[in-house]
Design a protein around this nucleic acid. Structure first.
Lengths: 211, 211
DNA sequence: TCCACTTTAAACCGATTGGTTCAGTTTCGA
DNA sequence: TCGAAACTGAACCAATCGGTTTAAAGTGGA
């Protein structure tokens, strides 16, 4: 009974091809942007007729926003990897830097970033959604850890939000810029390790305890 | 004679309204992106007939690239503000951070960044052009200063390029992200000073000499 | 098996697009 | 002042766009 009710509530969202359509929309929108994507292309990519597509969505705009919001919340839950709140900073920071960089440089993140940035004045809510589900969420998580680390006397920080932002920025150092402009999209472990080492060392030079 | 010859060489680029057209193109392209901009809009914004416009440019694409390249080199020469190579790091870094942040947050930089990012796979050369005239140029200049500062024994740095990138990233800390997503576009002096202080302090904690 | 519902392909719509053409006006150097 | 070159405005083109319609073909639960 619960199960049945749940299923009924889970996809009363009209027909069965709803997700299928959104998948096609994601493919085309992330590849070509909002204006660049044609509805016919989306229908083709989704393996669905245009009529079906328009039975789910009133127009192209809400199709786009719905897809973007889904991808943002996906991104959020993908970044939901837990930080070991009890481990020492040197270890946690290194681990977090690696994850952060891998996410930042991923094809998916790059594409959704581009679309959000490009379309953020045509769709004002979009920039906010991406910011909340990406940078803001990451910062909150890192700041949380830093607070606990300070409580244990492992770091000396006053402005936790700033510190968290600084760490995230340090992780980008050139890698992200090169990727986002399409200058480079494959990075060796050495290149990445160089940035991770630099980020962790610099961060701890400022906030770590003198030994 | 020299003058005449120079003028003839300076704008043999067909008619007199060349720059006028590029100005209009910039206005519309930076506002609406490549696909979003219509050639009629550009002609209207430039105060020029569509026929004239197409006498200068074979099509919309080269119009876009030509405009983008001009704006990139403009950006480069705008950032050409000199660093006082002899001043102490604490002062130079603070000054540079202020300039960097002001440039990064300017409406113009934001717009051209958005366009370059959005269009960087439709126009592969574009990402490179922006990167060269912006981030790469800034890094080179900062790295140059850091090298001289090290020669004077004022800093302890091994990887100058990484250090320069780190400094630039530290200056972004949240401000830039919020701006680029349209979440905030006006920043108080206090908000900016907080980031500048943080960037300089963190950078010098790592690379400054222990006193 | 039947029936209500969903999906389909394709034709179709008006609007807009990038781009062309052309007859007429403006501009400007010599 | 004259004439070539630059510029104009508007009409025009084929193509594509977002979106609608329709008649027929699946689909699945009772």
């Amino acid at each position: 009974m619960n199960i049945i009710a749940e299923q009924r509530r889970a996809k009363p969202r009209k027909g069965r091809k709803y997700d299928q359509v959104l998948d096609g929309a994601r493919e085309v929108f992330l590849l070509s942007g909002f204006e660049g994507a044609s509805v016919d292309d989306i229908a083709r990519a989704a393996g669905v007729s245009k009529a079906t597509l328009y039975s789910y969505f009133p127009d192209k705009r809400v199709m786009f926003t719905e897809m973007a919001e889904r991808e943002c919340s996906r991104q959020a839950s993908a970044a939901l990897q837990v930080i070991d709140m009890t481990a020492p900073p040197a270890l946690v920071l290194r681990q977090t830097a690696g994850r952060l960089i891998r996410i930042m440089l991923s094809d998916f993140s790059q594409r959704i970033f581009r679309v959000c940035v490009a379309e953020s004045d045509r769709f004002p809510e979009l920039g906010q959604a991406f910011y909340d589900s990406g940078p803001a969420l990451g910062r909150a998580r890192i700041a949380d850890y830093l607070r606990q680390a300070k409580a244990r006397g492992e770091v000396a920080i006053e402005d936790f939000e700033l510190a968290a932002d600084q760490f995230a920025e340090l992780c980008k150092a050139d890698l992200w810029t090169r990727a986002v402009f399409g200058i480079q999209n494959r990075f060796s472990d050495e290149e990445i390790d160089r940035v991770i080492d630099g980020a962790v060392t610099t961060f701890l030079a400022r906030y770590g305890l003198r030994d």
